[in-house]
């Protein structure tokens, strides 16, 4: 009798169960397009890292200066005869490296800070939130500019500068959910069971905010790519001669009348990548949202 009732309950519940998040992601339009666009760019960047570009991105070929797009040079050449396609792809790789390092740093630091600010009392919360608010008050580009000019200009400095700018976002995004999770019955239950605080935080609270962190990482990646491009465009980004999307646009500024492709190519790559990441972020958010149905 007992078993019967329980078994019926289980079957009913089974019928209600939802598809896993990744399958719901593939079913949504924005998710699919986002994966496709970011995938193309990521594969190209990976190829560039492995040296699989059609030409050496910094090799100059003076004879072939300012050639338009052609079967030989897909995106044309710049004023030194360097292949714009190879440089764009290598530039994505550089920009992406900076963005990934920056966002990883800020995600890890910001999430841990958000966890502790949400979970612990005012002695931890107050200083964390104070620092967060101060960082929030800085215009992102300005803080990155200051840091990039104050320290040696390597790609890592740029990454750290961008990371600092994005830490507060992760603190804010994670602290709210942690506050409500702290009061949830299963976290209280974990305390009743005598679990140590570290186990409660890392084993029970963190996994439940991970979807939020993943979505935020995707969106922050796109902003970080933009910030890196902006810094390079202002001459404070990845140092030359390493190609960077921002400095390519800067170089192309003077040539805009002569060779539109030198500006169009890196610009198009930036737009494709940022749009792709944003769509992917939207798709992920919908896929993780427990309120979204299975219809999409």
């Amino acid at each position: 009798m007992t078993i019967d009732v329980a078994a019926v309950g289980l079957r009913l519940a089974d019928g209600r169960s939802r598809a896993p998040a990744w399958r719901r992601l593939l079913r949504s339009h924005s998710g699919l397009v986002g994966i496709l666009l970011t995938g193309i760019i990521a594969v190209a960047a990976a190829a560039a890292v492995l040296g699989l570009t059609p030409y050496d991105p910094i090799a100059q070929a003076p004879i072939d200066r300012l050639k338009g797009p052609s079967p030989t040079y897909w995106f044309g050449t710049d004023q030194f005869g360097r292949d714009v396609f190879s440089r764009s792809v290598a530039g994505v790789a550089n920009s992406l490296t900076v963005a990934i390092v920056a966002v990883s740093l800020s995600a890890v630091i910001g999430t841990l800070a958000g966890l502790s600010a949400g979970f612990f009392g005012s002695r931890v919360r107050a200083p964390v939130l104070a620092v967060t608010n101060v960082l929030f008050a800085f215009p992102p580009l300005l803080l990155a500019l200051a840091l990039a000019s104050a320290f040696a200009r390597t790609w890592f400095t740029i990454a750290v500068a961008i990371a600092i700018v994005y830490i507060p976002i992760f603190v804010r995004v994670t602290r709210g959910p942690v506050l409500s999770l702290k009061e949830s019955d299963f976290v209280k239950a974990a305390r009743v069971l005598g679990f140590p605080t570290s186990r409660i935080l890392l084993g029970h609270v963190l996994p439940n905010i991970l979807p939020i962190v993943i979505v935020q990482v995707t969106l922050s990646l796109s902003w970080a790519v933009l910030t890196e491009a902006s810094l390079s465009f202002l001459g404070l980004g990845t140092p030359p001669p390493a190609p960077s999307l921002g400095s390519m646009v800067l170089d192309a500024k003077a040539l805009a009348d002569l060779a539109w492709w030198t500006m169009a190519a890196p610009g198009a790559v930036i737009v494709t990548f940022v749009v792709g990441l944003n769509l992917l972020g939207d798709g992920l958010r919908d896929a993780f949202d427990p309120r979204s149905g299975d219809s999409g």
């Binding site: 019955d185 299963f186 209280k188 239950a189 069971l193 005598g194």
Partner: peptide, 18 residues
């Protein structure tokens, strides 16, 4: 807690980690 003294509560819908 948990080893010598334990507790069960009102709402089983929320007292397990989802």
């Amino acid at each position: 807690r948990g080893s010598q003294m334990a507790m069960i509560y009102q709402d089983p819908m929320t007292s397990l980690n989802p």
